[in-house]
Amino acid sequence: MYATNYHRASSVEEAVKLATDNGDAKFVSGGQTLIATMKQRLASPSDLIDLRHVAALKGIAVNGRSVRIGAAVTHAEVAASAELRAVCPALANLAGGIGDPHVRHLGTIGGSIANNDPAADYPSAMLALDATIVTDRREIAASDFFQGLFTTALEEGEMITAIRFEAPEKAGYAKFPNPASRYAMTGVFVARRGGAVRVAVTGAGADGVFRHEGLELALSGNWAPDAVGGVSIDPTNLMSDLHASSEYRANLVKVMAKRAVASTL
């Protein structure tokens, strides 16, 4: 790891100021991706702004069906939240399936979303739940937030403070984890509100997380695993790597969509 300068922020304002004052700074909370990346010298921020001690970034609040999750809430906390589980068990289950127990004890929802790894679990949930990403300066709809591999709408020095969404009537998530890394080789998050269905796919798209109109149309007509059968998944824009070809991933999209819907029945 290259040398870096550590700063511990105690408020959002202080963290943003530290990031603005130090050109190549990065925010760190759980650090479960960033520290590993720095160890490989694939990232070399001049400064690290530690957010673990910023109280405003913590806590899960559920009000009726409105959910707000602080950016520095860990995957383990999301998985263990009885309040969240009561209105949106799919998101709690998703968090409980990220990485391994040690990663879940440190890694945070804000970090996962800000990194926008094409195989991360959370981006698919944000997109399918039509979530709002709250930052220190504005609110961004999930559909505008994720902009391709490791790319988001965040500006320099802008920091995610929370995510918000209305819990849908039904939601489910299923992934085919890479057996070594536990990242999604394909993960599908499905959500239904009235007749409106949103289906978001992670781990498969060559350009990161995406919605699938064909699946949405089929499932809005018939919310059942069988409804997925007739949908064709075009492998053209899917990832192909040593783990799986794009054709294989196209099939996984279907299978995971079926499982995600089945988990809600």
């Binding site: 650090g31 479960q32 590993a36 673990r52 383990a76 990663v103 004890h105």
Partner: peptide, 13 residues
């Protein structure tokens, strides 16, 4: 009180 990988966090953190 929580298990963590001590190679994934800085001492100063």
């Amino acid at each position: 009180g929580k298990s963590v990988k001590s190679c994934s966090i800085l001492a100063v953190q």
